[in-house]
């Protein structure tokens, strides 16, 4: 179930949002992370590779502990911890909404 979820997000990033070098990493049995490059910088931050963790909204419980684990695990495969992780929430109609999760406080961007 989870790997097809990652597959769905990968297709969405590649063909809908036109990202490049989208790769699925099987981090552990229950965690799949996706790395990729957006066509333009998403905001003024200097981030080359973005990291994404897919989730369904049918089991929407998520703990801070779990998010901490993501940062740790991705640091292990990536070398250093990512500045931020985008969570991809997949709905049962295929809608995917993305939200950034930062480790700690960041300066908000001007709207």
């Amino acid at each position: 179930m989870t790997s097809t979820l990652a597959e769905q997000v990968k297709i969405n990033l590649t063909h809908y949002n036109q990202w490049s070098d989208v790769v699925i990493h099987a981090v552990s049995n229950e965690l799949f992370a996706i790395s990729g490059k957006p066509p333009q910088k998403l905001d003024d931050k200097e981030i080359d590779v973005e990291w994404i963790v897919p989730k369904t909204n049918s089991n929407s419980k998520l703990s801070v502990d779990e998010i901490n684990q993501w940062f740790k695990r991705i640091a292990e495969i990536h070398g250093n911890p990512p500045q931020r992780i985008a969570i991809a929430v997949v709905n049962d109609d295929g809608t995917i909404v993305y939200y950034f999760i930062h480790e700690g406080i960041v300066k908000p961007r001007q709207n």
Partner: peptide, 13 residues
């Protein structure tokens, strides 16, 4: 009914 998986709603990919 439904949503195009590569579109916002109507399958226009």
């Amino acid at each position: 009914f439904g949503k195009g998986v590569l579109s916002r709603s109507e399958p226009t990919w």
